[in-house]
Simulated assay, not measured.
Amino acid sequence: DWIPEPLPERTGSVGVPAGTATADPADRVTLDESAGMAFPGALESMTPAQRGALILHDVFHYSFTEIAEITERTPPACRQPASSARRRVRALRTLEVPAAQQADPVRNFRRAWEAQDIATLIGLLGPDATLTADGGGLAKAALHPVEGGVRIAHHLAALSGRTPADLVILERTVKGRPGLMARWEGATVAVYAFDVVDDRIKSIWAVRNPEKLRPWTGIGGEGAGAG
């Protein structure tokens, strides 16, 4: 599966330099709504008209008059799919725990994973949780999403049994939300991003593709470790 790059920090708003004001913030996807790892998945679920209108207007800041000229439609016909697409994106955030409150579930997940405590992992994961990995053909990763909290817990426990003893798991901010970074022999070998809903982990994105981990080069290994 393809996963977007797990950037270690955020700057500005989507498509807009920091400090730039928009005419009506309610008519644009905000940074918090679009910076998360779930945003590309939401785009894929949209119709071409919704996706095109959202990207052209909210990200690249074309007016609906300009979009109408590009797509040979009327401005109202472009405005409606953009509005529908925006609702889809914002629905992703409706039940999600605020970023500041996601730290404890992610921290507890790290500790349970390191201890191979399957029962605690199952309790932290939602029953319909999904783990999606991306090795990009350059690193070992699950070929298909692992679905269900129980299956994910057992999958992670099995991974722990095959990882080097000196692998270190660190807590880091991933795309503005609490996440994890795995380091081995001074290099970042994996980054994990999370979606937390109702205090339980709903989605995990495991990026192992070294090309997507380049932004993490040089990020220090100090801090919360493998304990």
Rank of each mutant, 00 (worst) to 15 (best):
G149R: 05
V168P: 00
N108Y: 03
F64N: 15
T71R: 12
Q116E: 09
L125C: 08
C78H: 03
V97W: 02
L92Q: 10
R73P: 14
T173G: 05
E72S: 12
V97K: 08
G161I: 01
H144R: 07
P76L: 00
V150K: 03
R172E: 05
S63Q: 14
P164A: 08
R111G: 01
R151S: 05
L156T: 11
A112S: 07
L121C: 10
N108P: 00
L138D: 08
T120A: 15
A77Y: 11
A157I: 02
G176C: 08
P81Y: 03
T74M: 14
H154M: 11
S83H: 12
A82L: 06
G176I: 05
A100C: 03
I67R: 15
A100K: 13
L138Y: 05
T120G: 11
R93P: 01
A99F: 04
G135S: 06
H154N: 09
R172G: 00
A68S: 15
A142W: 02
E171Q: 11
A139V: 03
R162A: 11
R172S: 00
Q116W: 02
H144T: 04
A77G: 14
Q80E: 13
V146H: 00
A91N: 14
F109L: 12
E171P: 01
R90Y: 12
W113D: 04
